[in-house]
């Protein structure tokens, strides 16, 4: 790694002030697990990193007016073991269990898992399916962005260089059921070739208002609206498979080290149906 400056502000406001809207070599660092990989590989050579570790106001998990609110620098392991999270959206707890490994989860943060915008990450599709949003702090105030609108491209978000994710809000799920499945093609902890997150309202046995999101196989996590339409009212395996077919037809897939676009298309077909089935049987 090449040398850089390290700033350690104590407040969110101070941290935002240390960022620079016009300088991409100045970046925030929290857990740092993803950023360290980029710096080691030489694809990111910072002039200055602004550590968010000393900011106490960003580490909390609370239920506020029925919504789960998580501070951006909360480590993923804390989220994984939080009873409040498990009660509110157990799919988050289940997804975290297979997110990287325990040491990484001890250090990596919720905000980092979103701001890094690597499409292979597990939390973004799950949070989009749950209708989550982030509160973003900038110099002139805060704004709220649905996680579904956060990603602008491969490793890119809509955040300005001097904005920080302050917190994540997951709305009440009102009995909706959700599931996240991923397919890793080499080893269990590898980046997935495909992630599928679904959330459904189930009226008796029929699916209503499905939210279907795929990740890793696409440039950013994407909602599959044709598949969502196809899943509406689905009660049997044949209907779930039709939703899988619709997703395979509409997804704009990318080839990478985890698999070719043609291979991922078949994965989408199978995993979307499988995830819907899992959600119907899930809490």
């Amino acid at each position: 790694m090449t040398p850089f400056e390290l700033a350690e502000p104590k407040t969110l406001k101070e941290a935002v002030g240390l960022l620079d809207a016009d300088d991409p070599t100045v970046r925030p660092i929290a857990g740092g697990t993803a950023l360290m990989l980029m710096m080691k590989a030489g694809v990111f050579r910072p002039s200055k990193l602004v550590s968010l570790r000393a900011i106490k106001e960003l580490t909390s998990i609370e239920i506020v007016k029925g919504e789960l609110t998580v501070g951006a620098t909360t480590p993923l392991a804390v989220l994984e073991h939080s009873e409040a999270v498990r009660m509110h959206a157990p799919v988050i707890t289940r997804a975290l269990r297979t997110l990287s490994n325990i040491r990484v989860r001890n250090v990596a943060t919720v905000g980092g898992a979103l701001a890094h915008a690597d499409p292979h990450m597990d939390l973004p599709p799950v949070l989009i399916a749950l209708g989550a949003r982030v509160v973003v702090q900038g110099r002139s105030g805060a704004r709220t962005i649905p996680v579904a609108d956060l990603f602008a491209g491969y490793f890119e978000t809509v955040l300005a260089k001097d904005e920080l994710i302050a917190s994540l809000i997951v709305p009440a799920q009102d009995g909706r059921r959700a599931a996240y499945l991923k397919c890793t093609t080499r080893a269990v902890h590898d980046w997935p070739a495909l992630g599928v997150a679904v959330s459904v309202a189930a009226d008796g046995k029929a699916i209503k208002n499905a939210s279907i999101v795929i990740s890793a196989a696409t440039e950013t996590p994407m909602r599959m609206s044709a598949a969502e339409k196809a899943a509406s009212g689905a009660t049997d395996d044949a209907a779930l498979r039709r939703a899988g077919d619709a997703a395979a037809a509409e997804a704009e897939l990318i080839s990478d080290g985890q698999g070719s676009a043609a291979y991922k298309k078949e994965l989408v077909r199978v995993y979307v149906a499988r995830a819907l089935r899992a959600a119907l049987g899930a809490a």
Partner: peptide
């Protein structure tokens, strides 16, 4: 708490 030392800045 266990961490991967190769991904953890000494300053931290």
């Amino acid at each position: 708490t266990a961490v991967s030392g190769c991904l953890y800045l000494a300053a931290f």
